[in-house]
Design a protein around this nucleic acid. Structure first.
Lengths: 153, 153
DNA sequence: ATTGAAAGCTCTTCCGA
DNA sequence: TCGGAAGAGCTTTCAAT
């Protein structure tokens, strides 16, 4: 997984600019660092071909779509063998935005976005709890998110 | 927070393409939906000015940087009043990529990326536990992440 | 809200250093 | 790894619909 790519200071600037705004023009970065657009372009190509860059995404504001409730839900499975079938069902619930297989109390740990607490309750009782193998859930509502970032390069 | 923006099918296609790849050219989208580049450009401008779009980001692969361990950590605070000072300290730990104030067992709930389990242990014992107000932590390591997406538009 | 046109800028490639 | 140059492609604006 560590593709052995070597990153220097110029690469870091390219990455930083594009992490801030993925649509920043390559030529703008070129002017900033003082080398040619072609050189930046070549470096970006190299970075794209490495495993470092997964892609670039437009980031949406869930609140603008009415999704004001963020919650984490720990799921107890009756048996660990039900993991993959449960995942398949969770994938069909659009509000489930992350799904982890975790050590500790639970088997599955999900992050969920809902329009409000009522919708969350309905979703847990109606959609999640009815998945085959789900024994019990524990829910933690996020009242406030203060940090949201990527790993520092 | 719900800025009252109206989104039609064409806007949804624009958003979908840019969520897939933020660097997709507007003209490419224009050809796909069959209206002019100028029209798509205007729509994108409108979307950018709304609260729907937070921005666009290059997405990095933590594993390519050697960060192979993802963990969630519930933090018990001695008193809720220590929340903001604790956040300030957590912000100084680059491995902390998310930080939530949650209902339920804990006061603070963080997502953390580390190079390996040893680093995680060191970070918890050395950096997190020593923050003033932190009484105890509970750690859940993510062995596998199967879902990672944004809210459906 | 959409269009085509026009101007300016950006991307991409290629080759020589 | 970099720079220059060239053509293709893209963005941005505008007047008109």
């Amino acid at each position: 997984m560590s593709g052995g790519i070597k990153i220097d200071g110029i690469d870091k600037i390219i990455i930083k600019r594009l992490v801030e705004d993925a649509r920043t023009p390559v030529l703008g970065i070129a002017r900033e660092v003082g080398i040619s657009g072609a050189a930046i372009h070549q470096r970006l190509r190299k970075l794209e071909d490495s495993e470092l860059m997964i892609g670039s995404k437009l980031i949406l504001n869930p609140k603008a779509l009415g999704y004001t409730t963020t919650a984490f839900v720990g799921i107890f499975l009756e048996s660990a063998s039900m993991y993959s079938s449960a995942i398949k069902k969770l994938r069909d619930i659009p509000e489930v935005v992350e799904c982890h297989y975790t050590t500790g109390n639970w088997s599955i740990f999900i992050k969920i976005l809902c329009k409000n607490n009522e919708d969350l309750m309905y979703l847990l009782n109606h959609d999640v709890q009815r998945i085959k193998g789900v024994a019990r859930t524990e829910t933690f509502i996020s009242l406030d998110q203060q940090i949201n970032r990527q790993i520092k390069i």
